[in-house]
Structures are given as structure tokens and as C-alpha cells.
Write a protein that binds this DNA or RNA. Structure first.
Length: 493
RNA sequence: CGGGGCGUAGCGCAGUCAGGUAGCGCACUUGAAUGGGGUUCAAGUGGUCGGAGGUUCAAAUCCUCUCGCCCCGACCA
């Protein structure tokens, strides 16, 4: 056993080359994730190990979100993994939605259980149960709780980060005295997700409402932020649900209002998962590998010292350490790569694969001239390297990190705009959806039959009905009937 | 569950049709030269050929059964 583990430490990937995106996008995606050491396949089908580098990225996602939750009055708590099976069955839509993908524990302690336990696919039910105990009066409201947890959904087809049997996420669960307050909370959290995705993830998103068929099982309304991946497919990067009184009624979450009237609460839930890591990979990555936005990158700057002779080694290393120190004092997440078994060129490729936003190279010539060379990951290769004097290095690096962050956002937005089409008739719709792909911005009458007909013809689904709508109404792209709103259609992950 | 493919060294594969000493590349170890964009050369380490049974003087290879994984179709953060 020990021997096996030790041997597994030596796992490497042939030639460290990734499949070009144009050749096979799906393969590129898994190559990048494995070779950049974000994650690896676990021995159980559909499960993955999040490796330290990938987990570091997730930790920054967590921090960026958690800070925003706290700023808006939410507190973290933890609810258990195991849920009585009967709980799931209490809300009819919810059962229907989740029954096929439940993992169920039937035995414990060597005995068959009286009532099977479900491994949470999400925690509305158990949290609803507890809220019923904790909430008595309007004075207990609003109740604003978030939990960071793992959940399990027995998916058919799985992909690293995008769809695994077990995944990590945060799920916020709140209870309010009125519908309006719940709706306000739902929108507030969607706005927080948008701000997080755009500011920290450098991922432009479209905010909108989900169609009936796409909404969360048990929700009254679902909202989402949708992002375009590098292959022009859509990915839901976060969702926020107004649950109405559905769960309050199912779990008896009631409070006495100011008029001494007993009322059901209005609840919400909202979540962002490790899927967001997949979005970061697919929005920003290129054929060289990952490109991480500086605000979420586990390592923002890597320093690569370069030397030939032994006497150069100490001088270069001393200068590299000096750079490390000044960057640390500016709170830059910096790593000095002083490994001796690899040469500079090898390290350049390695750190580009890992998506580190900035690389500082320093060799004997630079030490002599009191300077260093800075390369940015979003513009790889030798052409865009800049020589920077030691004196102004730290502020320059800080400014460059901001610039990379902004450039990544701008580039992603440009890409989305270049691949979004306003279409008014279905033949144009089909041609794009079945051809080049992208987001299709079209009027939709609101009927489910048009929605499914479009899906069958093109595999494109309604990603969301954007909040940002034209003032005038139009005609449904499929049936030609009057339509009040435009929707974003796309093939999706 | 239906269709397709694959299990041979840590990883990627060849060898299977035509049975005859288990190979190649990468990684790893040691040494030397190299060192500003994946460096050469040399010498090494490492394998119950997914598992079980059978045929045969002899099986990675042929036969039977079995287990597992991946990809494509019905669900989803």
C-alpha cells in the first residue's frame, strides 16, 4: 500500500502538451486541468480530486464570495450531509427534480436503516426543517444563513469541475416576512454573483430570469448569471432562487407578524459551485494552458531566476529574493521558483500552463543593470516582455496585475459580443445554432412548446431571459406570435 | 440502459491478425557537459500484459466467462 502511494507521487503527463482548442475543445479542457494540476480523476467514476493548486484557486473564489456575503449581513453555518429520505419528498416539485439523482444510504453500523438517508443534493429540506424550529416571530426575520458544503448528485455524464457526482459549493438560505423582501434578497444575491464574476473572475455575465422548464425544482422564480465559454457554449455561473412559500409550507416555517397573525415565511436560496473553476478555465484559457485572473490566482507573480555559472547563482538568487520581498510587502502573492532541476525555458512553459498572470525573469545581465524582465500571461511569447528598473518594480507589478485583470475581462466581453447574434427569424437562428454557434438573442413568446421545439431542432436552450430588455415588443422567433421579451438561447454545459 | 472504443512500466502507446526471451517515448535515478523560451549524451530503476478458467510443449497473442474505464445518445450547479 505504502509503495503504491509513493509510486503515485511520480505521476506525470507525457510531454506536458495540451491538445489545441481548435482540434478538440473537450480534450483541451481536461488536458489543461490535469496538466496544470488543478484536479485529477478519483478511483470512483465521476469523482475528482481537487489538487492543491486547484483548491487554492477555489479558496480565493470562496474568500471573494464570503466577503460579499458577510458584507450583506449573512452568517455561515453548517448543516449535516445526511437527510431523512422523507424530507426530500415533502415538496412535490423538489422530489420530482431530484429523485433520479439521489445517492441513498440504506445501511449503517452493519444494519439496515429503518428510514433510508439521502446524501444531500442540496439542503433546502433540512434547512427548512431547522428554520421551522428557529423562526417564531417577525422579530426572527430575516434569517440570513449561508453554508459551504459538498453535495452529491448522481449524474449520468460527468466532467471535471463542470459536472461531478460530488461537488463543493456554497448555498445561501434565507427566510423573510414578505414576498417583496424575498425577491429583493434573491436579486441582491444575483447582483453579488455578477459583481464577483465580473470584478474578480473577469468573466462578463448576462443576468436574467430562468424559463419555467429551466428553473430550480421547487422554486417560484430562478435567476442566473450566464457566461460564454471559449467554445461559444453557455455556462450558468451562479443561480439565485425565490422559493416563494413552497418550502415554508412543506416544512411549516411560520412566524407571527406584527398583527399577531400566523404566516408562512418567504424563502430564498442561491449558490455558486466549483463549476465556476471550470468557467475560469474555459473563458480565459488558451492553447498554452490556463490564464488566471490576478484577483483569484493562487500565485499572481512567479519569479524565475536565471544563471549559468556558480558565481552568478548567488547574485541572481539574492536579487530574486529581494524582488520577492518587495512584492510580498505589497501583498502580492508571489512565488520564487529556484528549483535547480529545471531550466528557465522549461519553467516559462510550466508557469504559463498554470496560468500565473505575471512572470518576472531575472538573470546576471539584469542584476548588473538593476532591472528585471516582466512577461504577462495574457500576451505570451517573447514579443511582449518588458524590461523594468528595480526601483519602480513593485508598483509597476501591481499596476500590471490590474491591467491583466481588466484586459481579460475586456477580451472575454469582446468575444461574447462577437459571438452573440440578434435574430428575428428561425432559419437564421438554426443556421447559427447548428453552425458556428454562439448566443442567440431572440424574441420568445413564452410558450414551452416553442422552447422545446427550438431545443429539438438546434440543441439550444433558453439560458435566461435577460433583465436588460428592449422597450418594444416583437414576434416569437419560432411561432411568430406576439412576444413581450427576448431570451438568450445557446447550447450549454 | 442503447451504440462505439480501450485495459501491456508512474503517464502515453506498439506488440495481438499469423502463439516462441515483454518493447518504445516521456517521467524517475546517477554522471558529465549545458543553462536568457520545454538541453544533450551516457548508464540505470521500474511489468502478476485488468481478473478467472481453458486450448497448447509454449499464451500479452487463440477460446470462454468476468471486472473496470473512456467516448456518443436520455438528466443537471
Amino acid at each position: 500500500m505504502l509503495e503504491r502511494i509513493v509510486r503515485h507521487k511520480g505521476v506525470t503527463y507525457m510531454a506536458k502538451k495540451v491538445t489545441p482548442r481548435g482540434q478538440d475543445y473537450a480534450r483541451w479542457y481536461t488536458d489543461v486541468i490535469q496538466q496544470a494540476e488543478l484536479a485529477d480523476y478519483a478511483p470512483v467514476r465521476g469523482c475528482m480530486v481537487i489538487r492543491p493548486y486547484g483548491y487554492g484557486l477555489w479558496e480565493h473564489v470562496q474568500q471573494a464570495l464570503d466577503r460579499r456575503f458577510k458584507e450583506t449581513g449573512h452568517k455561515n453555518a453548517y448543516f449535516p450531509l445526511l437527510i431523512p429520505e422523507s424530507f426530500i419528498k415533502k415538496e412535490s416539485e423538489h422530489v420530482e427534480g431530484f429523485a433520479p439523482e439521489l445517492a441513498v444510504v440504506t445501511h449503517g453500523g452493519g444494519k439496515k436503516l429503518e428510514e433510508p438517508l439521502v446524501i444531500r443534493p442540496t439542503s433546502e429540506t433540512i434547512i427548512g426543517h431547522m428554520y421551522a424550529k428557529w423562526i417564531n416571530s417577525y422579530r426572527d426575520l430575516p434569517l440570513l444563513i449561508n453554508q459551504w458544503a459538498n453535495v452529491v448528485r448522481w449524474e449520468m455524464r460527468t466532467r471535471l469541475f463542470l459536472r461531478t457526482l460530488e461537488f463543493l459549493w456554497q448555498e445561501g438560505h434565507t427566510a423573510h416576512a414578505t414576498y417583496d423582501e424575498a425577491e429583493e434578497e434573491t436579486m441582491r444575491m444575483l447582483e453579488i454573483y455578477s459583481d464577483f464574476a465580473e470584478t474578480d473572475g473577469a468573466i462578463p455575465v448576462i443576468r436574467g430570469r430562468k424559463s419555467e422548464s429551466e428553473k430550480f425544482a421547487g422554486a417560484r422564480h430562478s435567476y442566473s448569471i450566464e457566461a460564454m465559454m471559449g467554445d461559444k457554449k453557455a455556462l450558468q455561473a451562479g443561480t439565485s432562487h425565490n422559493l416563494g412559500q413552497n418550502f415554508a409550507q412543506a416544512f411549516d416555517i411560520k412566524f407571527l407578524d406584527t398583527n399577531n397573525q400566523l404566516q408562512y415565511c418567504w424563502t430564498t436560496s442561491w449558490g455558486v459551485s466549483t463549476r465556476f473553476v471550470g468557467a475560469l478555465v474555459m473563458v480565459h484559457g488558451d492553447d498554452q494552458g490556463l490564464i488566471l485572473p490576478p484577483r483569484l490566482a493562487p500565485i499572481q507573480v512567479v519569479i524565475v531566476p536565471i544563471w549559468k555559472k556558480e558565481d552568478e547563482r548567488s547574485r541572481v538568487l539574492a536579487a530574486a529574493e529581494q524582488i520577492e520581498e518587495v512584492l510580498l510587502s505589497e501583498n502580492v502573492r508571489v512565488e520564487l521558483d529556484a528549483r535547480e532541476q529545471y531550466r528557465a525555458g522549461w519553467k516559462f512553459n510550466e508557469w504559463e500552463l498554470k496560468g500565473v498572470p505575471l512572470r518576472v525573469e531575472i538573470g546576471p545581465r539584469d542584476v548588473e543593470n538593476r532591472q528585471a524582465v516582466v512577461a504577462r500571461r495574457d500576451r505570451p511569447g517573447r514579443a511582449d516582455k518588458k524590461t523594468v528598473k528595480m526601483e519602480g518594480l513593485a508598483p509597476r507589478v501591481v499596476a500590471l496585475l490590474d491591467d491583466v485583470q481588466q484586459s481579460l475581462y475586456d477580451r472575454a466581453l469582446q468575444f461574447r459580443e462577437d459571438n452573440t447574434y440578434q435574430v428575428e427569424d428561425f432559419s437564421a437562428f438554426q443556421e447559427i445554432a447548428n453552425g458556428t454557434g454562439g448566443f442567440l438573442d431572440a424574441y420568445w413568446c413564452g410558450s414551452e412548446s416553442c422552447e422545446t421545439a427550438i431545443k429539438e431542432a438546434t440543441k439550444a436552450t433558453i439560458r435566461c431571459i435577460p433583465f436588460d430588455q428592449p422597450k418594444e415588443s416583437g414576434h416569437c422567433v419560432f411561432c411568430g406570435q406576439k412576444a413581450a421579451e427576448r431570451a438568450i438561447f445557446s447550447r450549454a454545459y
